[in-house]
Every structure is written in C-alpha cells, then in structure tokens.
Amino acid sequence: MLAEAPVTHTEFLEQVEAYALGALEPDQARAMAAHLAEAGTHPECEAALRRAQETVAALASDLSPVQPPAGVWQAIASSVSAAPEPAARERRRRPVPGWVYGLAAAALLLLVLGFLRYQAVSSSEAMAKAAAAQCARELADAHVDLLRKEDALKLLVEPGTQVVSLARQAAAAPNQTGTGVVLYHPRGRALLIGQRFPADPTRDYELWIIRDGPPVAAGLVPSSPDGQVLTDFRPELLAGGRPAAFAISVEKKGGSTTGKPDTVILVGALGPR
C-alpha cells in the first residue's frame, strides 16, 4: 500500500487485523481510518473490524484488573468540566436537581404504561404496572438506570419500532415466571424489557434470535436482585436481516454450550410491518 494512498475494499480487509492491533505505520493507519469513514456502504469492512477489534480486546481478558489511583478520575472530571462540549451534545445542560429525575422517571413510566395500554397488550399491562413501582424506586436511586430507561423509551416511541410480546411456553417450569416484551427496530436494535428473572446461582437465562435456520444465541440475560431486566440482544447478530422471532431459554450457568437452546420458556414472533 502506498503512503496515504486511498485504500480499496480488498486492501482494507487484508490489513484489518494489523489495523486493529495498531501494527500499521501511521500513514497506513490514517488511510485505513479514511476508508472506514466512508465505509457506511461496506458492512463487510465493519464486520471484519468488529471481529478483529474484539479479538484484540480479548487479548487483555486474562489481566487481573487493577484499581487506578483515585486522583485519575478526579483529573478526568476536572478535564471534562473544562473541555469543550462533546460533538453530539444536543444542547447545553445545566445541573439537574435530583427531584427532576424522579419526575422524569414517573413520566417515563406513565408513557410506557400508556403505550402498552394503547397496544392492547393486556398481559403486558399487568407486568408494566407491577414494574412501575419498582422502577420508580430504582430510577430515583441510580442515574445510570435513568439513562437506560430513557433509552428504552426513546426506542419505544421511535418510528418503526415494533413491540413483540413474549409468550410463555409449555416447557417453562412453574418457578420460571419470567415475562417481558422485546422492542425491535429494523436499524438493528432489539431490547428486552422483562421482569421476574431472579438471579439463580445454578442457571442463566439466554436470549435467542430465530430466522430461517437454527436459533442463534444472542447473549445472557443479566441477573438483578429484583428480577427486572433491560438488556440488548447482541447488535451484530441483528445486522443479518429481520428476525422471525425472539426467544428466551433456561440454561446451565454460563449459557448454552451446545449452540442450541436447552429449555425455551418464552417466544415472541415478529409480525409483518
């Protein structure tokens, strides 16, 4: 490759591993970055980069984490308070009092409840009502939680989003009472909103995407003390086209080791648009 010469699609794929490792010369790396900047039409390049970057990240997975000195975060906080606003900030934000988050949480939940009622998903309504009280307490406690639920609401009201109710399957044991809905958007996002997925030291719940072939594992459902869940299906698996359905199975701790679901307890079909 010539210095800073434009990189072709083929050249990008030939060098993507070295690029992800940081093993190219600076001019080569700049040329790769320039190609990537216009690679919106090259999903193959993005997929190759994703695979390479995640493999590179895995090389650090056996390091024992080390807590950095407290002064590092203090220095970061000072820097960002003095730094220019992030490029995508939509507007300047003033400090928000804590009670505003409580009100926002209540408004969010009312909107979710209203939306589900509008959808006439009666089984989800009871779930959402039960979730409301619990969510309000959580959202008051943690700003991170608020961000996640704000995100869910944005997805819920985004044009094109479909709400997929998950139906309980006969194979579900009486104590496997988890239920929920999946918010699906064709741009490649699927978010599970669930409840009654209690932490179990011996078992995990696993997400599955179903198309024409065998189900594809799409991540574990994170456990939480209250059994409530907001979690994404793995986005790279949604790039392969519109799913026919979503499912949740019960697996041994750590998830399926066979590539197939063990006991499927919830399934929801994605209807036509």
Binding site: Q67, R93, D232
Partner: peptide, 28 residues
C-alpha cells in the same frame, strides 16, 4: 452502549459510570 449515548449527550455521570466499570481492566 446506553452509557456511551449518555456521554455523547454530555452526561458526566455516564462517563463516570463507564470509568468505574472499565478503568480497572484498562489500567491493568
């Protein structure tokens, strides 16, 4: 992903949450 979206909106608390979660492995 949600935290990164929060950071993009200028939420320093989202940045702090990301830091708390990932800085030990990055520092190592």
């Amino acid at each position: 992903s949600v935290l990164v979206q929060g950071v993009a909106r200028g939420e320093s608390s989202a940045l702090e949450a990301l830091y708390r979660r990932h800085s030990p492995r990055l520092y190592a």
